[in-house]
Design a protein around this nucleic acid. Structure first.
Length: 183
DNA sequence: TGCACGATGAAC
DNA sequence: TTCATCGTGCAC
């Protein structure tokens, strides 16, 4: 499959977040290839973004965000869910894109609309934190027929504590797609 | 060493 | 609107 190159991730985070819409997220385990089409994302712009995990500097948890682009940043939240991000921009910039919803394409069971749900459906957990997305068992690829996508821009979900940053339009989803986590 | 809280989801 | 459930970060 047409895997996205490292250079795709090494660009402006808001742009990467929007261009990830329509791409295929692929996870291979035990010979089973699970595929979901990315339909919703959020951009986290770096240490200056008060809603980003990197806003309070480098810690053991967010270290992957400070690393090179094209790697998975997976964290555990609310005591029971995992969330998947892809690291963007040059090393040290500490920015990432949260994958919020998928449209099932192959071998997916259970809901995939929501960051926690999609991780469960693809078997994504802490063991994939820091995993290279140019690997053969976990990667993002161009779909067979990339069609023109209408992008909707909204404020990010669940970051009300971030003040002005919470109001910025950094959540992106495919217009009228039924698999978006919420309208 | 203790504790408040979260880039969520499910139930009520 | 409330609660489950626990790792993380920061206050003592």
């Amino acid at each position: 499959m047409n895997k996205l190159p490292r250079s795709f991730y090494d660009r402006d985070t808001t742009r990467v977040a929007q261009e990830l819409l329509g791409k295929y997220l692929v996870r291979v385990t035990n010979g089973v290839t699970r595929i979901g089409r990315i339909v919703e994302t959020e951009a986290y712009l770096g240490p200056h973004d008060r809603a980003a995990h990197s806003a309070r500097g480098l810690t053991a948890r967010n270290a992957v965000m400070f690393g090179p682009p094209g790697h998975a940043y997976v964290y555990f939240i609310y005591g029971m869910h995992y969330c998947l991000n892809v690291v963007t921009e040059r090393e040290g910039h500490a920015s990432a894109v949260l994958i919020r919803a998928l449209e099932p394409v192959a071998n997916l069971t259970g809901p995939t609309n929501g960051p926690g749900r999609l991780c469960r459906a693809l078997g994504i957990d802490r063991s994939l934190n820091g995993h290279d997305l140019l690997s053969d068992d976990f990667y993002i690829a161009n779909p067979p027929n990339q069609r023109k996508i209408a992008v909707v821009k909204r404020p990010r979900i669940g970051v009300e504590y971030a003040g002005w940053w919470a109001r910025r339009l950094l959540r992106f989803y495919i217009a009228n797609n039924p698999y978006v986590s919420r309208a």
